[in-house]
């Protein structure tokens, strides 16, 4: 049934694929690794070009999630509208809010992270179950392996590998990712592991007696030399705790501050701060968790900073913001960082 030529072609292709699988399963370096590097360089270059050409299309990306969020958005806007109307009548209320916002912005620059801004140019297919992205900055821009990647909302991931002009970033939600985390208020430490789902992380506490509550904010614990994770970066907010204190396995579900499915501009931390900023990069939110502020903060503040968890009126803050607003908050009010190459 098969012609001789077809048989030979099929056999060669299948044997080649199996060889790839076996070599790749063994891992490590060798001639095979350099083939991968060369291919990544060439294809990465093509992706850069394609990302530029297709930017009008991808710029319109996110329309689906926008549409999905519209109902919630209408509710939020109506709520905000009535709030604004009452605020208009009390100018002093406005003034207080502006002051609160200013304070938030001042505190958020405390982190003093040096970073290289970069744009996302490619995303891995969802059916591969791997949460990785490609950004348009590489070794030529000073990016090295294991550098921390952030955006205006918090920790995004770390650099997995680099080529001359692009880098592959593994996101914190990838199931292979594990980040040392610390509860901002209680200093309890643990490991924040990715679950493979875009909106949840797993926080395993090292101390089973530790007191972790819904609404607690997590920051990175930091690694030696700031790699792969710089200290003090906001990771996410505890949304659920399973197991009672003292139980052997206590796991908290954490929602990351950064919405990894809607990334556009990210920053690669090239130099972490000299000192661990502790949780000062999470301005107010930890303080608020202890003593909730009487007046709800404005929508703008909600966008710029991680949600000061707990208070019910702040719930909307953590839902993904529309892409455009997100971009604005990334570039203008970027929580943490002081741009290195910016000006």
């Amino acid at each position: 049934m098969l012609s001789r030529r077809t048989r030979i072609v099929l056999a060669v292709l299948v044997v080649a694929s199996l060889t790839f699988v076996i070599l790749d399963l063994r891992g490590g370096q060798g001639p095979f690794a350099s083939v991968r590097t060369v291919a990544a360089n060439v294809l990465g270059g093509l992706e850069r070009v394609a990302a530029t050409v297709f930017s009008p299309i991808t710029g319109a990306g996110g329309w689906w999630s926008d549409m999905r969020d519209q109902a919630a958005q209408i509710d939020t806007l109506q709520e905000e509208n009535s709030r604004l109307q009452s605020d208009l009548q009390t100018l002093t209320g406005d003034k207080a809010r502006a002051d609160a916002l200013d304070a938030l912005l001042r505190v958020s620059s405390v982190g003093k992270y040096r970073f290289v801004p970069a744009e996302v140019i490619a995303v891995g297919p969802a059916q591969d179950f791997s949460w990785t992205i490609t950004i348009d900055a590489g070794r030529n821009d000073g990016i090295e392996q294991d550098m921390t990647v952030i955006n205006g909302d918090g920790l995004v991931g770390r650099v997995l590998k680099t080529t001359a002009s692009t880098s592959t970033v593994v996101l914190i939600v990838d199931s292979s990712s594990a980040v040392g985390g610390r509860v901002a208020t209680t200093e309890e430490i643990g490991i924040v592991a990715g679950t493979g789902r875009q909106d949840s992380l797993e926080f395993q506490l090292l101390d089973p007696m530790a007191d972790v509550r819904k609404g607690d904010a997590l920051v990175t614990f930091g690694s030696k030399g700031g790699r792969p994770y710089a200290p003090g970066l906001p990771i996410g907010e505890v949304v659920d705790v399973s197991g009672a204190p003292g139980q052997l396995t206590r796991v908290a579900t954490v929602r990351p501050f950064a919405d990894v499915s809607q990334l556009s501009v990210v920053g690669v931390v090239t130099r972490p701060p000299r000192e661990d900023p502790r949780d000062s990069v999470l301005p107010k939110s930890s303080a608020l968790a202890v003593t909730p502020s009487p007046a709800p903060l404005g929508a703008a503040a909600d966008q710029a900073t991680p949600s000061p968890s707990g208070a019910p009126e702040q719930e909307t803050a953590a839902t993904p913001a529309p892409t455009k607003k997100k971009k604005a908050s990334t570039t203008e009010t970027a929580a943490t960082p002081v741009p290195e190459t910016g000006n």
């Binding site: 030529r5 077809t6 072609v9 099929l10 292709l13 299948v14 080649a16 694929s17 199996l18 060889t19 790839f20 699988v21 070599l23 790749d24 399963l25 991968r36 291919a39 990544a40 294809l43 990465g44 992706e47 490619a122 995303v123 891995g124 297919p125 591969d128 791997s130 990785t132 992205i133 490609t134 997995l160 080529t163 692009t166 592959t168 970033v169 593994v170």
Partner: peptide, 29 residues
């Protein structure tokens, strides 16, 4: 035959193209 060749190429390229991080060769097979 051409389909199989295209399949091999497509599988290898999608694994090699950044940010591909999967086992090389599985998609190809």
């Amino acid at each position: 035959t051409q389909g199989a060749v295209a399949g091999f190429l497509g599988g290898v390229l999608i694994d090699l193209a950044p940010p591909g991080d999967t086992l090389l060769g599985v998609n190809a097979i």
